[in-house]
Design a binder for these strands. Structure first.
Lengths: 360, 360
DNA sequence: CTGAAAGCGCTAACAT
DNA sequence: ATGTTAGCGCTTTCAG
């Protein structure tokens, strides 16, 4: 007998074994529904387990079984509709597949992101799903993880160019941006700015590329002063509008790289007394639960955020099920355009000779 | 020598021990900065550990040390500004105290909440922080947890009446609600509705109590038809407005139990073509990052959500530091009133004889 | 200062 | 069908 100086009241297999007068192994098997065990013993074991409130020690189980049934997650932000939704998706999908999700938040801080990745490895999670911070440049940690053989999957954000050997799930950023801008152009916008988004992160790069492609496709110049890269958060949008306004260089329409960037635009506009959409109009990549309620209701490219999460887990489970395969998998989800009260062409003055386009 | 059929490339203490030609124990001590070990050996060990990319196996460490340095967290929702912020607070405070946070989300589902609590116990987290779902009634699981001796702390939401033996951190809901309603009355509102919130959860009970106390304190009747309890989410607000409108019973002001409830009110109003604040005005308990941007900008009782998280961890660490003490600790944080564009008294018609109050 | 021994609670392999 | 043996990788005595 071990287990004399117990630290807490949590029952162990031995406690049950003693009572039922079988071995620890029998109990373990019985509890997991192993076919070896007779119905009678199994029932007895389950009954006693229930009685004494037995809960398996997952720590011990993980150590012994060399798998933790945990999926590690690293996201840049959490108080943020998009990530909240992705996390929810991951969370639910993992849960219904008997996986626990270990959430970590980098706060857009690459250093902290690295530490989290190390911690997740330390915890021996079975796989890692990550959406990188906007400042992630150093890819060494990813190479290390690949060398260790820990499955890692990028959702939405990944470094550009991405480290090799990892699968990913993201939306068709370029096509989404293209559609939005093309729509804007079709209803008369000409002076369009593209704000936010570092091009060393895929989403910044692709969305900007989509913007530029649409402009070029319609013979419009891409003005340097109207392509203001930067972060993905509110501050970026806010600062950009202040800058453009100060320089008296306001475009007709701002294409915001993310929903928070658009929020920043709204805030700056409110502060400066600029009317949306009359003085400056906005459309953004990414939806939110309040887009319909803010005024004017924000038009956007809607990302299937929840699906991004569930699909991510799906791909991860797939990888986990085929440990030998080294094949990368890349899932690209489409993004819809949702036009609400911004970017409807109403602020575009036909007198300037630009005229309203054909609409939808 | 053990460790022959290694499953992955993750280095262990033995790997380092072999190379440095010391024992596993020495390596373990060296890595943790135990004073036993000589500088020379320690340096050598650290060097090799670094070289081969050693990461401690936290699972094994937890099992052996009988503590996991993990704090379990259960929240009802995640794509929600308030909880996002609380989680961020908990997360950061835990992180800087060397604790990992294990997040679980009940989705306002008591059954799922129960499972999560069991899982967290199974994972042998050192402590649990929970904000209960709106439907949590069965307190048996809490009794079980208390019996096990696992420290558990309520943040914000807890059952009412609460199970005994647990500490908590929450805001002064009653006083906050009281202030909001008193302010509203002072600037002329009389017909005030109180929407959302089950009274079997503390926040619903206290906020409603604050509302009623303020009404009574100013000699106003609490109309049954204007106290619509229910959930804490958008749907509750939406449905309530539809109902009141259908019955032609719109009050002058709606006191929304939570920020999502207020959002629901906005959505319903938009759909019904009701103007806020002219047709019906709103104030709510709980702020959000978009309250200033929605139109009209929403006035509210601001909860210190981030602090709720950090204080929660503080209290938890305190409990963890004194395992013998069975003393409950209850921390109550104050809530501010923030008046923006709603609930400013502008829609209150003085002709009805009610007149504008003295303001602040 | 260093290491041998024991064990955390569980599972997998191999008897019986 | 049940039990025995041998770890998982680490930490904690406790003896050198």
């Amino acid at each position: 007998m071990k287990n004399t100086r117990r630290i807490n009241t949590l029952a162990t297999l031995d406690d049950i074994a003693q009572r039922v007068k079988v071995s620890r192994v029998t109990v373990s098997k019985a509890l997991r529904g192993h076919p070896d065990i007779s119905d009678k013993t199994a029932r007895m074991v389950r009954k006693v387990a229930e009685e004494i409130g037995y809960r398996p020690n997952i720590i011990a189980r993980s150590l012994s079984a060399r798998r933790s049934n945990m999926i590690g997650l690293v996201v840049p932000k959490i108080a943020h509709f998009f990530f909240g939704s992705v996390i929810e998706g991951i969370y639910n999908a993992a849960f219904s597949n008997n996986y626990e999700t270990i959430l970590t938040v980098s706060q857009e801080n690459p250093e902290r992101e690295r530490k989290h990745l190390q911690t997740l490895v330390s915890m021996r999670v079975d796989g890692i799903i990550i959406s990188v911070s906007q400042g992630t440049r150093d890819l060494e940690i990813f190479h290390w993880i690949r060398k260790l053989g820990v499955p890692l999957l990028f959702v939405d954000r990944r470094p550009s160019p991405p480290p090799e050997g990892f699968s990913s799930v993201f939306v068709d950023d370029k096509a989404g941006a293209f559609r939005a801008i093309e729509h804007a152009i079709s209803i008369g916008y000409r002076k369009i700015a593209c704000i936010g988004g570092d091009t060393r992160i895929n989403i910044g790069k692709e969305r900007t590329a989509g913007f530029e492609a649409a402009m070029k496709a319609h013979g419009l110049p891409v003005e340097k002063r109207w392509v203001i890269s930067g972060g993905f958060s509110k501050e970026t949008g806010y600062d950009a509008v202040l800058k453009l306004h100060g320089e008296r260089q306001l475009p007709e329409l701002i294409f915001a790289m993310t929903y928070p960037v658009a929020l920043g635009v709204y805030e700056a506009a409110k502060e400066l007394g600029l009317k949306i959409p009359q003085d400056v109009d906005v459309i953004c990549f990414g939806d939110s639960d309040v887009s319909r309620v803010i005024s004017p209701a924000l038009s956007c490219v809607r990302q299937p955020s929840y699906e991004l999460g569930t699909k991510g887990v799906e791909v991860m489970l797939n990888i986990l099920a085929h440990p030998e395969s080294t094949q990368e998998q890349h899932l690209i989800l489409p993004a819809d355009l949702i036009v609400r009260e911004t970017c409807t062409g109403k602020n575009v003055i036909t007198a300037t000779g630009r005229g309203k386009g054909t609409g939808q």
